[in-house]
Design a protein around this nucleic acid. Structure first.
Lengths: 347, 347
DNA sequence: CCATATTTTTGAAACGTTTCAAAAGCAAAT
DNA sequence: ATTTGCTTTTGAAACGTTTCAAAAATATGG
């Protein structure tokens, strides 16, 4: 049905190989034949088959970015960073959801070598699959996840230190009973953030709660619910450190509805510095990290394949707004931030 | 280097075709051989070549979703709708940015038949390319864009009517001097929204400004700047209708900074009902439309290819919050909404 | 035990490109 | 005319699958 390179060749009265060279702008072809070929191709509205091309060339010139859910407010900047670097290498980028388990699109694409390299964020792709497919010809970079293997690199955030900074900041502001609003217990970043929370309490001789009392699955509604439940209890904390911003925002909503003043009665600090932060009331104090840079660096790593695994640690940054109760003289649009230097280099 | 189906065949001591059948769970193959084959495949850590497969089968079982920028707050729900329907058909979804002009990834993918169908949102892909590649074997659905051709379907939003409803609402609340905060003049949806704005003014015998005085390129910062400039002038309006929510939010920020009370002095209404709306202060009155449904319907259309172009019109909905100045007795989290029924069917 | 069905396995021909190595054209130099 | 050295064009062999049609093996029934 659709025209192939053979049809173009026939119409232009030349060999198939000539068409190929001509359309790929090879210098071997004379201008005259090139014109003939292009004309024929247009007349037949010829579209080359990417599949055939990739098969023959044994590469797709495409990088895959695999995410848990394409929608999250968090990802968009990461994507931008990836996009930029991929484009600068004249490669294509496809973004794909990891949703769907065993035979999700992501799994299929990883297995079937649709892409020449992959960047993986989120936990839906099991370590085993990554280990299976990573190879010199197929480098993989994992984001915010520890995984060591040949041709697997990782870009990490200083989760522990960031959480530590957040909690320490609350302590410095005089808060003594600080609760941890947890994300999924199985999540890597959540557990790191929990570690940082505990370290800060310990180092300041504050009691560490025996167990996690609030869980919000990293969702706004989850934070809201967890805090609703908390409010029904009797002994309220004077601060909440949420493992991500969505939950922090849900927490603030629940507190407000319960007549609790934020930050006067209970201070709230989140993590991730999502773009919504400056818009909620009170504006959200949080731990930021450079998402664009994360994407860009990850992509660089994909292009600089190296056998030994290599991990890069990105710094975090305390972003002080209103919800922590820090007294500022300036307008609420302004914000202060304290950079926590990270280190970059071999893992 | 990497193992191919031939290597697996050799190792398992069977023919290439047997391996293919075995791994694709064809019922012709005996359990015994299947086991042998699977074992060999695992031993060699065989990964089938998607390119070869697609070439032979002449399809990729993949749908492409092409967006202007992957990050926008607007898109995520559309993506979810698409994702859901694509998955229900056991197809794969790739999302891809149209950024990059002539030889962007998007252009390449569209041309090289990497995908079996496409959903296109945003204006970066020229009509000409769409017309060129749309075919029975390659259906295309365009979102919020009018384009009629064989095998091209469109899913539209009632932009004109939505804008009309927004402005009418402001008029009913007593506003008389309503300015239009425009997006890019060339944008299809912007011009439709402008039409609706003008119609509402005319129908209520209000003067229609001779020309558009504020432009904000659909960006928050654009709305902010445009309003800053407006504030420097002398005759202020008593309401602003922004062609999208981002600009409306920027407008509110500028007004607040300028000491203008929203909505008391100037009311603001946006368009799109992005998720940020309920979080800004005052909460944003806007025109909503179901983004998830938009994605889902578009995807259905891709799978139900029909020759004659077919367009579907989705209803909009006035979402009343604080920024329009409507006096409500209830808490600010609540919101009222008025559905404007759309019609669905042939264009 | 033979003929006939049925199940399982196999060769070989695609699918539509790229690219190597050889052939053909063509000019200039002998 | 023939050789030499270019430039341009071409055939044919991949690339790694799927799938048709035929062959081989096995089972079924008389």
């Amino acid at each position: 049905m659709a025209a192939t390179i053979k049809d173009v060749a026939k119409m232009a009265g030349v060999a198939v190989s000539t068409v190929s060279y001509a359309l790929n702008n090879s210098p071997k072809i004379s201008e005259e034949t090139r014109r003939k070929v292009v004309k024929a191709a247009e007349a037949l509205s010829y579209r080359p088959s990417g599949a055939a091309r990739n098969l023959k060339k044994r590469k797709s010139e495409t990088i895959g970015l695999f995410l848990n859910d394409l929608g999250g407010p968090f990802y968009s900047q990461v994507i931008e960073g990836v996009q930029e670097v991929v484009a600068s290498h004249d490669y294509n980028l496809i973004v794909c959801s990891t949703y769907g388990g065993e035979n999700s699109s992501a799994n299929r694409f990883l297995r079937e070598k649709f892409v020449d390299g992959a960047i993986i964020m989120g936990s839906a792709i099991p370590d085993s699959l990554i280990l299976q497919v990573a190879a010199e010809s197929f480098p993989i970079v994992v984001l915010d996840r520890e995984l060591k293997a040949d041709y697997v690199h990782s870009v990490l955030i200083m989760n522990e230190q960031g959480a530590y900074d957040a909690v320490k900041h609350l302590i410095k502001l005089g808060r003594r009973k600080i609760e941890f609003l947890s994300g999924p217990l199985a999540a890597y970043d959540n557990s790191k953030r929990y570690e940082g929370y505990k370290r800060a309490l310990k180092e300041h001789n504050l009691p560490v709660p025996a167990k996690i009392s609030m869980q919000g699955r990293y969702l706004e509604a989850g934070g809201y619910q967890a805090v609703k439940v908390m409010l029904a209890g009797n002994r309220l904390p004077d601060a909440i450190f949420a493992a991500n911003d969505e939950m922090a925002i849900g927490a603030i909503r629940a507190l407000r509805e319960g007549g609790v003043r934020v930050p006067e009665d209970i201070a709230v600090v989140g993590f991730d510095n999502i773009s919504l932060g400056p818009f909620v009331r009170p504006t959200l104090t949080t731990i930021g990290h450079s998402k664009y840079e994360m994407g860009a660096i990850a992509t660089q790593l994909v292009f600089n394949v190296q056998k030994d695994e290599n991990s890069i640690m990105l710094p975090t940054q305390l972003v002080i707004r209103q919800s922590c109760g820090f007294k500022q003289q300036n307008d609420d649009q302004d914000e202060t931030s304290i950079l926590h230097e990270g280190r970059r280099g071999l893992g």
